[in-house]
Simulated assay, not measured.
Amino acid sequence: MNQSDWFSIENDEDFLQQGVNQQKKVKSEMENIVSKYEKVILEENLIKYIVIASKNDDPSKKVNEKSRIKIKCEEKDEKANLLNPTQYLNTFKISLSSSIPLIKGFRLALLSMKEGEKAWFKISGDLLEKPDNIENSLKDHVKYYLIHIEEVSQPQQQLDVTNVENRLIQLEKFKEEGNKLFQNGDYIGAASRYLRGINFIEKWPKNLNKEKNSEKIKEDFYLVLVSNRAQALLKLKDFQECQKILEPIMQRLEQREYKIKCYYRLISCLINLEEYQKALDYINIIKEDSRYPQFEQIFKELEDDCNQGQQK
């Protein structure tokens, strides 16, 4: 065979065609993977393939521009090479309202999803460009992302606290959140949450003081929040701070159902601070309360501790 036979037009075309076929085969590896799923064309360069459809009909569980989401994301190229093997092992969080740069197509992909959904996305062309790298030409580039939305949460709208009614709602929220943290053993968190409520009352707008029940609401919540904070401080063994916040309110506790508890907490603090005489003085005061007989035994134990402490 002579040299011209090797490079005939026919052989040339066959050779080129083989190259094209091989290229199509390489490009079709990811296409074979996604072809078995339902296809949705979101944009010209963004195609969605639904792997697991979400069963959640709650509108708040659909991703929007303000959502905070927990996701897993697998990134592959056209040859089905995994590009982010370490990241995919972990769930990570994204806030769609943040300034974190995201591939335009990736952001659009997320906005088409709901909690519990899993889908492949084929992103190509300009949608692969990042805002901080717009000079990089990616028109012929294609990537595939397998995105699993594990959780969607929406930021709560800030409560308008310019009226007494809404301030009451906010105070109740501070108390309930503190109680929940306390029940879970997070005494530092609980003490901090109660303190936020106390500060909220201390910064009460003067123009609202004339509103009906405003003063009563302030007093009721202030005493409860101080009492609860004292209990958290007692758990944290911060006896000085506990004494500091309790003593000023003791005279304001008449007719309060938690009066006995506050006396018990304050007396316990004083014993730990070795202020035994002051503790005994408070024991003598609480003995005058009509409910004292129901709690006589526990206060008797505190009284014994005081007497033993004084004898040392």
Rank of each mutant, 00 (worst) to 15 (best):
M1T: 09
F7V: 12
E13L: 15
D14H: 11
F15E: 13
G19R: 14
Q22I: 05
K27Q: 13
K27G: 10
K27I: 08
S28T: 00
N32P: 01
N32F: 03
Y37V: 08
V40S: 03
E43F: 02
L46M: 03
K48E: 13
I50K: 12
V51K: 10
I52T: 14
A53K: 14
S54H: 06
S54Y: 06
N56L: 07
D57Y: 03
D58Q: 13
D58K: 13
K61C: 14
E65W: 03
I71V: 14
E74T: 12
N84W: 08
S97K: 09
S98K: 05
G105L: 11
L111V: 00
M113R: 04
K114V: 08
A119Y: 02
W120H: 01
W120Q: 00
S124E: 09
I134F: 06
Y144F: 14
Y144T: 03
I147P: 07
I149H: 06
P155Y: 06
Q158H: 03
D160E: 07
V161W: 01
I169V: 13
L171R: 08
K173E: 10
G178I: 03
K180L: 15
Q183R: 15
G185P: 01
F200M: 10
I201Y: 08
W204H: 11
P205Q: 08
S214G: 11
E219Y: 01
L225D: 07
Q231A: 13
L236H: 00
L246H: 07
Q251L: 12
Q251K: 14
K261L: 12
R265Q: 15
E275C: 11
Q277M: 06
K278Q: 11
L280I: 12
I283T: 10
N284L: 11
I285N: 08
I298G: 00
K300R: 07
K300I: 00
E301P: 01
E301Y: 03
Q311E: 13
K312W: 09
K312A: 10
